[in-house]
Design a binder for these strands. Structure first.
Length: 650
DNA sequence: GCCATAAAGGGTTGAAAGAA
DNA sequence: TTCTTTCAACCCTTTATGGC
C-alpha cells in the first residue's frame, strides 16, 4: 500500500520520485498524482526536476501553494493531473471537497520524516484513506527520525507497509557514493570567554547557595520570591549556554532582549539591580562590533559600508596572494574592527581560507557551506568572512520573518540559492533553513559551526555535500572533545539502523504500521494478541499529568492499583486541558465510548474490575508499536500530545 | 508585503511520580 | 529514603496560511 524509501542524501530521491510519478501518469490516464513537499522552494524545485527527468507534459502539471487563490486551485484540480503542492494546501482542498480524493492514484511525500503529530502530511493521508484506498504512497526521506519511536510514528501516520533502506554501505549503492570525511575541530573556549563564563557562573552559584541555606526558614512570600528566582536561573543558564556554544554576541543579545522585554519585568527588576551583572553585560557589549541583522540585502552582492570597504580593500591586498603556509588570521589592528566573539570564529576563518587557498592552488572552483543555529551567529560569520572578499564571497541564508525581525522571504531565498549556484557567492552561511532538500549543487566543504543536538539535522547538514565530487570535507566545530552526534549516541544510531533494517528486510509481508492488518489475520489483532498473552497485567493508571497511562503491573504502580480497586477518588481530572485548542486529547465522548457508556467523572477512575475480563490492554496509541515491535516494557510515559486511548479485546 | 496565528522541530529545567 | 524518569513550562528555530 505504501512504501517508505530511506535513501542516503544525494543518491537521487528526486529521480526516484520523478520516475514513479511518470509511471503512474502512464498507467492511470485519468488518475491524479500528488507530489508533496514541506516548503514552496522544494515544491518548485521538484517540478523542474520532473520536467528534466521524465518530460511529462507541462499542460498536465501544476504547482499548488497557498499563494494561488482557492478559486484558481479549484479549476486546477479539475483540469490537471500532476500536482506539486504543499501539504497544507492539499489538506485544505480535500477538506473543502474541491480535490477529488477518489481520483488520486499516487502520493509522493518528500521529507517524510515530517509526518508527525497533526502535521498536514498526516491529515492528507488520513483524508485520502477515508475516501479511498485505491492509491499508493511513496514516502521519501534520508533522515526518517531521531529515534525508533519517531520513525514508528512516521510509519503509522503514512500507513507504511514496506520499507526500503539504502545507506552508503548498501551493496547496490556503494559503487556510486563519493568518499566523505568528517573531521572534528575542538576549539577551547579561550581565556576571554572563560573569564566571562566564570564571572557569570559565580553569580548563579552565589544565588544557589543563598537559597540552599535559608529556604527552610523563609516565610511563604519569601519562598515565592525564591521560586521565581528559579525561573530566572533558567533564563540565566540558557544565556550561559549561548555564551559557551555560540559566543559573546548571542549571550549579550539574549540578555539585552530579556532586559527590554515587557513581559520579563521580574527578571528585569532583579538583574537591573545587580551591579555586577550590569557591569559584566556592559563590558561584553563594549567589546562587540555593532552589526545589523537586517543589513544584508540578497539583491545586492555585498552591502558593506564605505568604511568597511576601505578596510576590506587593505585586507584583500594582503590576502589575495597569500602564500602556502602563511598566517591566515588577521593581525591585531585589523581584528579590532572585527572582533571575534568566540574562538571558533577564528578557527572558522582559518579553515575556510585554507580551503579556498588549497583549491586556488589546484586551480579548481569550490563552494563552502557553513551552518549555525542562530541568525545572529550567521550574520557574524558573514561579517568575519566578508573581510576576505573576493576570495571568499559569503552570503547569509536564513528563514522568513520572525516577530519584529526581518528575514529572507522564500523569493529571496530562491534568489540567493540561484546566485550561489551561479557563482555569485561561493560561501553560504545558513541556519537550519538550508539543511533540507534544496539542491545546492556541488559543495566541497561543510562547516557545522555549532553542534546540533539533533541527529536528523546533522545528517541533513552533512548530506549537503559529497554528491558529485569526491574528497569533500565536513568540519564539525565544537568546544568539547567527543561532541559529534556520531560519538555521542553510537548505540542509538546502531539501534535505529537495526530497527529500520528489520522493518525493511521483511519484504512486502512485514506490516510496519499497526493500523494495517497483518498478513494471515482475519481481524488484524491476532498477531498482536499472541504477543499480548505474555503481557496480561497491563493496566491503566495515571500520574500527575492526569492522562491515561500504561504500565506493567510487575514492579510498578501497586499503590495506584490499590487506589483504583478501592474506588478511591482521584484528585485530578482526566483531561488537563480544554478541547478548544487541541484534538490530541481524548474527548469526553471518546472516553465515554471507551468506558462503554460509563462516563468517568472528572476526578474519578472507574473500577478496574468492571472491565478487567474484557480489556486486557489499554494503551496510548503511540505506545502500542513500541510494545509489539520490541517486546520490551514501555519505557516511558508518552507525551500528552500523543494520548489517544485504545481498547483492544483479545 | 506585512503581520498574526498555528503547526512542527529541537533543547533545558525543577517538580512530581514512581521504582528500588 | 534515595534515585530515576517523566512532564509542564519555558527557551529557541522553522514553515504555511489567510486577512488586511
Amino acid at each position: 500500500i505504501a512504501l517508505l524509501s530511506l535513501i542516503l542524501l544525494g543518491l537521487g530521491k528526486t529521480f526516484i520520485a520523478a520516475v514513479v510519478m511518470f509511471n503512474f501518469y502512464r498507467w492511470y490516464p485519468l488518475g491524479k498524482i500528488l507530489f508533496l513537499a514541506p516548503t514552496k522552494p522544494l515544491v518548485h524545485q521538484q517540478i523542474d526536476s520532473c520536467y528534466k527527468v521524465t518530460g511529462i507534459s507541462e499542460e498536465d502539471t501544476v504547482e499548488l501553494t497557498g499563494q494561488m487563490k482557492a478559486e484558481q486551485r479549484d479549476i486546477a484540480w479539475k483540469q490537471k493531473r500532476l500536482f506539486f503542492a504543499t501539504p497544507q494546501v492539499v489538506s485544505n482542498d480535500l477538506a473543502r471537497g474541491t480535490c477529488d480524493a477518489k481520483s488520486v492514484r499516487c502520493v509522493v511525500i518528500d521529507e517524510a520524516h515530517k509526518a508527525l503529530g497533526q502535521q498536514s502530511y498526516c491529515q492528507v493521508i488520513k483524508s485520502l484513506n477515508m475516501s479511498s484506498s485505491d492509491f499508493r504512497v511513496l514516502a521519501l526521506s534520508a533522515t526518517p527520525g531521531r529515534d525508533m519511536a519517531a520513525i514508528q510514528k512516521v510509519l503509522n501516520n503514512l500507513r507504511i507497509s514496506k520499507l526500503e533502506l539504502r545507506s552508503e554501505n548498501s551493496l547496490d549503492v556503494a559503487p556510486y557514493t563519493q568518499d566523505r570525511s568528517l573531521e572534528t575541530v575542538v576549539v577551547p573556549l579561550g581565556e576571554r570567554l572563560n573569564q566571562i563564563k566564570d564571572k557569570y557562573l559565580s553569580l548563579i552559584v552565589i544565588r544557589d547557595q543563598f537559597r540552599k541555606n535559608q529556604a527552610k526558614t523563609m516565610s511563604k512570600n519569601t519562598v515565592n520570591i525564591v521560586e521565581s528566582d528559579f525561573a530566572i536561573a533558567m533564563t540565566l543558564y540558557h544565556a550561559l549556554e549561548l555564551l559557551c556554544i555560540h559566543g559573546a554576541r548571542s549571550f549579550a543579545t539574549f540578555l539585552d532582549e530579556k532586559l527590554n522585554d515587557k513581559q520579563s519585568n521580574l527578571l528585569k527588576s532583579r538583574l537591573m539591580h545587580n551591579p555586577s551583572f550590569i557591569s559584566l553585560l556592559d563590558e561584553v557589549k563594549q567589546q562587540l562590533m555593532p552589526i545589523d541583522v537586517q543589513e544584508q540585502d540578497p539583491d545586492i552582492s555585498f552591502s558593506v559600508s564605505i568604511d568597511s570597504a576601505v578596510i576590506l580593500k587593505s585586507v584583500h591586498h594582503s590576502r589575495l596572494n597569500f602564500a602556502p603556509g602563511s598566517q591566515v588570521a588577521l593581525n591585531r589592528s585589523e581584528r579590532e574592527q572585527y572582533i571575534c566573539t568566540h574562538p571558533k570564529m577564528e578557527k572558522l576563518e582559518q579553515v575556510v581560507l585554507a580551503h579556498f587557498q588549497s583549491c586556488k592552488n589546484k586551480g579548481v572552483h569550490t563552494r563552502v557551506m557553513v551552518f549555525a543555529e542562530y541568525r545572529e551567529t550567521v550574520v557574524e560569520i558573514c561579517h568575519i568572512l566578508q573581510q576576505y572578499y573576493p576570495v571568499v564571497k559569503p552570503m547569509k541564508f536564513i528563514g522568513q520573518v520572525r516577530q519584529g525581525k526581518g528575514g529572507f522571504s522564500q523569493k529571496q531565498q530562491i534568489e540567493v540559492m540561484k546566485k550561489f549556484c551561479n557563482g555569485g557567492y561561493n560561501t553560504l552561511v545558513s541556519t537550519c533553513v538550508g539543511e533540507e532538500g534544496l539542491d545546492i549543487g556541488e559543495v566541497d566543504l561543510i562547516v557545522c559551526f555549532d553542534s546540533s543536538s539533533s541527529s536528523v539535522r546533522t545528517k541533513q547538514r552533512i548530506g549537503r555535500t559529497g554528491r558529485v565530487k569526491p574528497e569533500c570535507i565536513k568540519l564539525h566545530m565544537t568546544i568539547k572533545p567527543k561532541e559529534t552526534p556520531e560519538e555521542q549516541k553510537p548505540k542509538t544510531n546502531q539501534d535505529l539502523r537495526l530497527f529500520m533494517t528489520k522493518r525493511s528486510s521483511g519484504g512486502g509481508s512485514k506490516c510496519c504500521s499497526p493500523a494495517l492488518p497483518p498478513d494471515g489475520s482475519d481481524t488484524g489483532n491476532s498477531v498482536l494478541a499472541d504477543k499480548a498473552v505474555s503481557m496480561v497485567g497491563i493496566l491503566v493508571c495515571r500520574n500527575s499529568a492526569s492522562t491515561l497511562r500504561v504500565r506493567l503491573v510487575n514492579g510498578c504502580t501497586r499503590g495506584i492499583l490499590a487506589k483504583m480497586c478501592q474506588h478511591q477518588p482521584v484528585q485530578r481530572p482526566y483531561l488537563r486541558r480544554s478541547m478548544e485548542t487541541s484534538n490530541c486529547y481524548s474527548t469526553p465522548e471518546e472516553l465515554s465510548e471507551f468506558w462503554e457508556g460509563s462516563v468517568p467523572m472528572f476526578g474519578k477512575l472507574p473500577h478496574i474490575d468492571m472491565f478487567w475480563d474484557r480489556i486486557q490492554i489499554i494503551s496510548t496509541l503511540s505506545a502500542l508499536p513500541e510494545i509489539f515491535s520490541t517486546g520490551e516494557p514501555i519505557k516511558s510515559q508518552n507525551r500528552p500530545s500523543q494520548i489517544s486511548a485504545v481498547c483492544m479485546r483479545i
